[in-house]
Design a protein around this nucleic acid. Structure first.
Lengths: 144, 144
DNA sequence: CAGTATCCTTAGGGATACTG
DNA sequence: CAGTATCCCTAAGGATACTG
């Protein structure tokens, strides 16, 4: 979602800044964020490289999104002083609090896609409990 | 939300096209769409000019958003052959079906904004039943 | 492994003027 | 009233290369 623009006139900025819809959408209604949050919640914690194997996301955009989620208080980042480096991402309490909304979003979207006979990603259905999870990492791995 | 890009590589397009999150977000997680949907649901039906008095939105962007909502099956447009022209916008059944999600989004955002002591728009609170509604059109009118 | 740094493209959206 | 038609600008995000 297009959540931030600086080229609005003042009264629009003020209006939007006081609006809970845009506050909420800014925090988690963005292309990859539902995936990132869901991925963490499914595994309890996860690591940078693991995201890139689960999603066709570039490292730059992944890093950006994780920074934003962290700055907004949805995600915690734990750095271990090891070589090679290890960083774990977990959800905060606030992060967990949006999972019900994300699930509602997913369920609504899935229902409507089924009515329209659109193809639905099977891996996503596994994450959301509509299909049984197997033991491998979610396929397909988007290695590059 | 940034919902549509054509410059993705094929495998990303395919991935996103099968995803219920992005399907749902594309339909209603965009800057003004929650307002538009909520505004219609509060008044049962509404008209073009009324939106522009309730929101600081330009006519071009309003028209665009209404066309999208219509094309996506959330909004119905009824044209009366009168002079001056009269057009009424109503929610479809599908449009009404997302109101609970929008309300959850609003409530979550409002709660978190209150925790962070951020100012919250009073008119929005009226629309959402957190404040009593008065008889005038929602203030302030963003006349231009 | 877990990221930056650079360069580049494009679509969203603002402002304004005009019309049936 | 209910919209188009233009013009313009900016920030999100892709691709690629590089680093502690």
């Amino acid at each position: 979602m297009d959540t931030n623009r600086s080229d609005y006139p003042e009264h629009v900025k003020e209006f939007l800044s006081k609006d809970p819809y845009n506050f909420a959408m800014k925090l988690f209604c963005k292309r990859w964020k539902p995936f990132l949050i869901k991925a963490i919640s499914c595994d309890e914690f996860t690591r940078f490289a693991r995201f890139t194997k689960q999603l066709p996301i570039s490292e730059k955009v992944l890093a950006q999104n994780l920074r934003e989620l962290e700055a907004d208080g949805l995600v915690m980042r734990t750095v271990y002083a090891e070589v090679p480096p290890r960083v774990e991402y977990r959800l905060t309490e606030l992060g967990y609090s949006i999972c019900p909304i994300l699930n509602a979003l997913y369920d609504w979207g899935r229902e409507e896609m089924k009515k329209r006979k659109l193809p639905i990603d099977r891996e996503g259905e596994i994450w959301h409990g509509y299909q049984k999870r197997n033991e491998t990492i979610m396929q397909p791995p988007f290695s590059r």
